[in-house]
Design a protein around this nucleic acid. Sequence first.
DNA 1: GTGATGACGGAAA
DNA 2: CTTTCCGCCATCA
Length: 100
Amino acid sequence: MASERERSVLARVRSVPEGYVTTYGAVSPGSPRFAGAVLAHTAEDVPWQRVVRADGSLAQGARQRALLEAEGVPFRGSRVDLGEALIPPEALTSRPNDDK
DNA sequence: GTGATGACGGAAA
DNA sequence: CTTTCCGCCATCA
C-alpha cells in the first residue's frame, strides 16, 4: 500500500522512455531523498536505472551505468549527458507541480 | 513524542 | 574542474 507520494514517484519513473533518464528532484519535488528511498525498497516494475542525480551522476554506479548504456543513453565520461538524455518534467505523465 | 539517516540538491570554497 | 557543507522532507528506530 503505497502512499500517494510514493505512487507519484513510481508513476514518473515508469513514464521515462527507454534511452532517456530523469532526476530525483523531478520525480520527488521538494524531497529528492524520498525518491531514492522508494526505489531502494521498490525494484519490481520500476526502471530505477533511468533515475539519476541532478548533475547526471549515477546513484548505483557501474551497475546502473551498464543498464543505461544498454538502453542507448548517451554518456559524458562517467556521467549521463543530461543535455540529450534528460527528460523535461513536462514530458512525464505527471509533472512535479503543474498547478503553477 | 524526539532523534538519526538517506539511491539528493544546490551553493560555497 | 573537484570537494565540502548545509538544508530538505519523509521514513525508521
